[in-house]
Design a protein around this nucleic acid. Sequence first.
DNA 1: TCAAAAGTATGATATTTGTCAGGTATCAAT
DNA 2: ATTGATACCTGACAAATATCATACTTTTGA
Lengths: 235, 235
Amino acid sequence: MKEKLEIPSCQKCGARQKSVFCSLNSDQLVQLNEEKGCDFYSKGEIIFKEGSYSKGLFCVNKGKVKLSRLGQSGKEQIVRFATAGDVMGYNSMLSKRALGASAIALEDSVVCFVPAAHFFELIKQEPEFSLKMLELTAKNWDNASKLITNMAQKTTKQRLAEMLLWLKETFGLDKDDCIDVQLSREEIANMVGTATEAVIRLLADFKKNKLISLEGKRIKLLDIHGLVMIADLVD
Amino acid sequence: MKEKLEIPSCQKCGARQKSVFCSLNSDQLVQLNEEKGCDFYSKGEIIFKEGSYSKGLFCVNKGKVKLSRLGQSGKEQIVRFATAGDVMGYNSMLSKRALGASAIALEDSVVCFVPAAHFFELIKQEPEFSLKMLELTAKNWDNASKLITNMAQKTTKQRLAEMLLWLKETFGLDKDDCIDVQLSREEIANMVGTATEAVIRLLADFKKNKLISLEGKRIKLLDIHGLVMIADLVD
DNA sequence: TCAAAAGTATGATATTTGTCAGGTATCAAT
DNA sequence: ATTGATACCTGACAAATATCATACTTTTGA
């Protein structure tokens, strides 16, 4: 499945500055570059699977990845996304528990792999790196607790509006001002926590009310303020 | 509000072994003990408040604490609990973001406070401590993503059954085999993400079906297996 | 000790949402 | 072009749950 490719160097990695590796010095980067592996995953391919154990940390060099876990009778729940510079699979390594989520490429992606041994070496050597990791996990928790609150308290419509805004933040816009990620209606439902039909109906509703425009999977946000109103406030 | 009290020593702290400070040597413990503060909070008192900034790490010495954030129009969402040995307030310190949740004492509690400067000193000095912190945040994420999935996919009844089982794990049982924590129906609703009335009705239903017994706020689990069945599977 | 307040309980009703069933559009491969 | 597969869409209905109204009970505090 996964093919070897020309390995991108950490030193020249465009995503490094916004990654957890931003504080490493050049010696450490050279070393990281030697220790790491790298693989290409085409759209839909599984990068790692919920339930297995992570033997290192994955870092997205290029592409888009969804992280999801299986809930109720096999239904997928998307818990977060990863794009260039984001790391994945470290929680399992740190907690010595099985991976809590699977990672699947949403488009053709390049993902590097840092073996656990070298990761722990970095922690030992470089307190700044520990702090970056802690900062990252702290932000993750913050997002997660917000998501828990939304899931528990908001209506499907509110959650969908919020997710659209969040997708825009996460993936940005393409040249046509559409959200720069292709998700099926089912995948959107699996983020929002509802049935596919509900998403279809609500998107049609948003379109009717000129909040968004739709062209297949491509979604353009026309009225950000309106969506914010729906997401945060009254129906 | 909060009163000073005789400060429990870290060296003799019964909860230390199961805490994030378990790997510190005796010198480090002495120092920690000198740097830390400690306060008593009576039932219902606020330990810290969502939105402010944490200047250190709180560690529960004794008692029970709920961590909750405000959602939709001021409704409380309980995101986790903390008991002896658990730490709180570190995410804000690490991410430099405002505190994402408030901490409120569920019963009379003693909570120590480690200033940020000393926390960061420990991170710098002791990689083992960094690892313990990372392990903790990793486990938190794992729990959070599970909770997100449950909130998104399970029915109220399933979530309530799961929460009862989780409360038992978190707080254990008292001498009468009741779950050793006193929560109002409203607080339970604020964990499960539903209305108070729904909790009352469902608890009555569980009682009718001999899954639990009720005596005011005291809940005894009579049929663990039955609750597991409800939580994980069919209705 | 009493009154007020807070918490608990139950019924009736309205709304939201999930489920099922059927239909159309799109795309890939033969 | 035809088929089959998959995704997308729509309507009807049933079920779950929120909301509102109203008691009852317990706790709190003056």
